[in-house]
């Protein structure tokens, strides 16, 4: 099999791609996609570990975790999209730089 470490490099890099996406993108849709990327990086990690526990066998625990976490990611995205609709109604744009009225 391919070495486990390459997969971990991949998932960590994917995680940082997601962070980069959250930090730099201006479109709100892309920010939501960035959150999805973050969650999927973790999901890939789970799946890879489940295969590498023993050769030829998988751990069903990681599979169930991933199935549930995909559904959770869907829930977050749904709420985020509903909020984006209202942000668009108020501001007339999807650009997050226009949403800087709060100081925090």
């Amino acid at each position: 099999m391919i070495m486990l470490d390459y997969y971990i490099v991949f998932s960590i890099v994917l995680f940082f791609v997601g962070i980069y996406c959250l930090a730099t993108k201006r479109n709100m849709m892309r920010i939501i996609l960035g959150i999805e990327i973050l969650i999927n990086a973790a999901n890939i990690n789970f799946i890879v570990f489940s295969v590498y526990r023993t050769e030829g066998f998988v751990d069903p625990l990681a599979h169930s975790i991933v199935i549930v976490s995909i559904a959770l990611a869907g829930c977050v995205t749904a709420v985020a999209l509903a909020l984006v609709v209202y942000a668009y109604k108020h501001y007339g744009t999807l650009d997050v730089r226009k949403l800087k009225r709060l100081k925090g």
Binding site: L22, G34, I35, I39, A41, V76, V79, L83, H90, L99
Partner: peptide, 16 residues
């Protein structure tokens, strides 16, 4: 709406 969106992005990145 703006605060909620900001909260959502930061907090769900934390969850991830």
């Amino acid at each position: 709406v703006e605060a909620g969106l900001k909260y959502l992005v930061m907090s769900s990145a934390g969850s991830a």
